[in-house]
């Protein structure tokens, strides 16, 4: 039975000092990550990804709720817990006056377990100029240095805040390969934020989408792809504007045609729609990017009405698998 290495419970964060004008960046995050999981945190810019990760590591203090990391309070991590965590911030900051090699040696000196052969190998693979001053490194090289520093002590929990944002496609793929090697050891857990969905699709076993300070969509990657589908309807007659389908993430109607994104696809719904509207129905698989857009566009618009609900049978009724949480403000 895997144990949770990371638990966020009712986590809220506001940057306003005024208790009467709280502007929450995080509005109640509940997230439990089991050992061995690779969790991709998706969200638009400003959705609170970095804030969530910083709250998890004791860089920010939660306004409410709690984060438990490796069985310790995230705000007050012990030295021992910190030696088991690796973190790559969005913007890697280091000492401009040191050589890259000196920064590595300096950091290594703090960790009781430091895998220097691994670090040497990574530096070689990523062509990190070790005898160069940090000030003269390019953004990509600096990011690489940050990643090397976070991997050197072989952390059990690796937290990456948009680790590949400033890497070129080749370097990004190399990083992904390294990440895959790391997670081949099933005791390792990785939480990383990104908005490059194609990277997530390769490595992540689980996806959590952050929207407006809450987890909007959360589930195993494969499960999400299995169940979030888009139906394209081509009916004989114009469809009503307020056509509603239970569990729909997004409904777009254009005359006799419609596309409906379902959070919880079931083949029976296709038959029902086909019969009800005398329509051609095709099912489209959605990749992560399309899901991401669907989640955001649905929540941005008006809530779907419940009219015409009697035309279609409830989609969840005969589904025993657990339903992905859809939480829209």
């Amino acid at each position: 039975m895997p144990t949770p290495v990371y638990i966020a419970a009712g986590l809220k964060k506001s940057f306003s000092g005024n208790p009467f004008a709280q502007n929450y960046v995080l509005r109640g995050i509940d997230l439990t990550v089991q050992q061995g999981a690779v969790v991709g945190l998706l969200g638009q810019n400003g959705s609170g990804k970095s804030t969530l990760l910083k709250c998890s590591l004791g860089l920010l203090r939660p306004s409410a709720g709690q984060v438990t990391v490796l069985d310790e309070d995230g705000w007050d991590l012990s030295a021992e817990a910190k030696s088991r965590i690796g973190y790559v911030p969005q913007e890697v900051v280091s000492y401009p006056w040191m050589l890259a090699r000196q920064v590595i040696e300096y950091t290594a000196a703090f960790y009781p377990r430091w895998n220097q052969p691994l670090v040497d190998e990574l530096c070689r693979r990523w062509r990190l100029p070790l005898e160069e001053r940090v000030a003269a490194l390019s953004t990509g090289q600096l990011q690489t240095l940050g990643i090397v520093l976070a991997l050197g002590h072989e952390p059990e929990l690796l937290i990456l805040d948009e680790p590949v944002a400033s890497l070129d496609p080749v370097a990004r793929r190399q990083f992904l390969r390294t990440l895959l090697e790391i997670v081949a050891d099933r005791r390792r857990t990785v939480i990383f934020s990104t908005h490059i969905t194609s990277d997530l699709e390769r490595v992540a076993t689980r996806v959590a989408m952050l929207r407006d300070g809450v987890i909007g969509l959360d589930g195993e990657m494969d499960e999400l792809k299995d169940r979030v589908k888009r139906l394209h309807l081509a009916a004989a007659a114009p469809l009503p504007k307020d056509l509603a389908v239970p569990g729909a993430l997004a409904v777009e109607i254009d005359g006799a045609e419609a596309s409906i994104t379902l959070a919880n696809f079931d083949s029976s719904i296709v038959d029902q729609l086909r019969v009800a509207w005398n329509a051609d129905v095709t099912v489209q698989d959605l990749n992560l990017e399309e899901m991401f857009i669907a989640v955001h566009e649905h929540c941005g618009g008006a809530a779907p009405s419940v009219a015409n609900a009697n035309n279609v049978k409830s989609a969840e009724s005969d589904d025993s698998r657990n339903v992905p949480e859809i939480d829209c403000p």
Binding site: E201, K225, N287, E290
Partner: peptide, 10 residues
């Protein structure tokens, strides 16, 4: 094709 809508395992 990791970016396909069909899960990799499938």
């Amino acid at each position: 094709h990791p970016s396909s809508g069909v899960p990799i395992y499938r």
